[in-house]
Write a protein that binds this DNA or RNA. Structure first.
Length: 141
DNA sequence: CGCCTGACGAAAC
DNA sequence: GGTTTCGCCAGGC
């Protein structure tokens, strides 16, 4: 298990060396600011997540070059529901595949959305997380 | 202007 | 191997 997790993370790392240059975005940050910032980058990446797939905060952060700030990614999702182009925040979970954000969706909305996309959720955790995992780095190319 | 908090993650105990 | 602590960075108070 751990090895698998390690693998997928390693995978992300392997793909590293990616410039990860995402700019000129105009989205509204949680605070209401309309400027290019870390948040918009997160939103954009999140929006790239294919239906039926999931990714982790850390992966996104990594993709943006701020892997040490996975927290910011998660926090950025806080405003995901406010931005116009809907951001599939429900497809973003923590590195364990756990729906850590379901609490913010209210009830089990998050889980329902995921299951609707064919993702099985058990005990607030994505089943076969590794298989459903989508590397944000892919969309950079 | 400084302190606390936060949808994470990884190292240290 | 489970639990606690710290780091990161931006925003709220």
């Amino acid at each position: 298990m751990r090895r698998l997790t390690l693998n997928l993370f390693t995978m992300a790392k392997a793909k590293k060396s990616i410039p990860a240059k995402k700019e000129k975005l105009s989205v509204v940050t949680p605070s209401g600011k309309k400027e290019n910032s870390f948040f918009e980058q997160v939103y954009e990446v999140a929006r790239q997540i294919p239906r039926g797939r999931v990714t982790s905060y850390g992966a996104i952060a990594f993709c943006l070059g701020t892997k040490l700030s996975a927290r910011m990614v998660g926090w950025a999702m806080n405003g995901a529901g406010q931005v116009k182009p809907k951001v599939p925040a429900h497809r973003v979970v923590n590195r364990n595949g756990m729906l850590s954000g379901k609490h913010h969706f209210g009830g089990n909305t998050m889980q329902k959305l995921l299951e609707k996309e064919g993702i099985k959720v058990k005990n607030d955790t994505v089943v076969d997380f590794e298989k459903k995992f989508w590397d944000p780095s892919d969309q950079l190319f």
